[in-house]
Design a protein around this nucleic acid. Structure first.
Lengths: 231, 231
DNA sequence: AGGGTTTGGTGTAGAAAAAACAATAAGTGC
DNA sequence: GCACTTATTGTTTTTTCTACACCAAACCCT
């Protein structure tokens, strides 16, 4: 048995769907594979899990190596383990998604940085392995979760406008007829989780919008009292 | 041991939270461990995944070996992979839950049958490994899923009464004040997914209730048209 | 046969939430 | 000051949710 064959006798990995938002479409960070299998193909960033490493830790490590970022929102979605999903052996993978502020992502420290690129989720073609299926699964989870927990803010800068927030929700949920502006503002403000900063946008060539921040402390206090976010 | 070799020392398993309902509490099927580690402790039925076996297939196999049942509702929840979760080595496990009609489960064919027993989910104490955590996770998933998809019927016999159905929902969701009978019937019948069989219960010493069946074909047709179950 | 017991079955009114919908305000650029 | 762009705000209608109580149908017992 060759070294490669034996290495892949049985292993597990993590793959990370890294979401970002820049005001337009929802984006994910993909890397272009530099080695076989699937050389040259776009793929989710991932790695084998080290023997003494928790799954969450491995996912955090993959994220940090690629983006330099720590302490970001990360959630496990599920395992993918079809027998033939990896051409070189039996590798099951645990899928994660994470949410980062795209502006925090600058040219990256990791070696695969040069081949990493943001892609609109709507324009992602075939990916290596079963990564398209993993992406679909993570996107579906995000769509559900973003309505049940205030995680959308993880994709926005600390100060944001209500229009930006609405565009974020529209880019994730993609409702057929868009979201009604008045109803959206009513609902999001009624949570009382946004602080009006009494500041406005600068540098825009039209009426500047007010800036808000998400009040995480208040949210956690409400949760402790039984509150459940729902938008 | 080299780093490469140590990747071999890992294994993966599936564990299955098997739910059943008998009219009273919601139940799960546990087995009593006959060997170390955790000998004598109650645990979720599970097994290592064979090298040429898909994860779903492994979960189905575990279920069939224990209950003799095939073609039952089965859903992956997520992976549990803490480094120290298994005392004998690195074993990550993929958690599944399944829903069976408790009346279909008779004395079982598998060798561990003698030590398998139904336990009320509310009265489960400590379990082997991290199985309590897995159970909690699966129960949480079931609570959400049973409202978003018509999977509750998987726990009931083909013909059931509305009271039985309501008791099922109450046993899963455990709402503080119970569920209002009239509102529940209104909502569930308004889906038009229950066929009135024009039959009544027999052998009860009070007014017999009408029997219904779930119309799976109709449901699948509606889903194809964009329908989304919500109760 | 009749009354007691148990569970089955049904409708309506008020409250709350969701959806539909358009005019004015505050900036910039010319 | 006028044209242009985006921001901000409230009301009405519709739908959904919630709360709530009485009669019906079977069995049991005497």
């Amino acid at each position: 048995m060759s070294e490669v064959e034996s290495f892949f006798k049985s292993a597990f990995s993590v793959d990370n769907v890294i979401f970002g938002f820049d005001g337009g479409d929802l984006k994910i960070l993909l890397i272009q594979r530099g080695a076989a299998p699937y050389k040259g193909k776009w793929a989710l960033p991932g790695d084998l899990v080290y023997p003494n490493e928790d799954l969450d830790t491995a996912a955090e490590r993959v994220l940090e190596q690629l983006t330099g970022l720590r302490d970001v929102y990360l959630e496990q979605v599920r395992a993918f383990g079809a027998v033939d999903r990896h051409p070189l052996g039996r590798v099951i993978t645990i899928a994660y998604f994470s949410l980062i502020k795209i502006s925090d992502y600058t040219v990256t420290p990791a070696s695969f940085a040069q081949s990493a690129m943001w892609h609109s989720v709507n324009k992602v073609g075939d990916l290596a392995f079963d990564h398209k299926e993993i992406l679909d699964s993570c996107l579906k989870r995000l769509k559900r979760k973003v309505r049940m927990a205030p995680i959308g803010f993880e994709l926005l800068p600390p100060k944001f406008t209500l229009t930006e927030l609405q565009q974020l929700y529209e880019s994730i949920l993609a409702p057929p007829k868009g979201i009604d502006k008045r109803n959206f503002r009513k609902k999001i403000l009624s949570t009382n989780l946004l602080n009006d900063l009494n500041q406005v946008q600068e540098g825009v060539s039209h009426r500047p919008a007010k800036l808000y921040e998400f009040d995480k402390d208040k949210y956690e206090q409400l949760v402790a009292e039984g509150y459940s976010f729902d938008i």
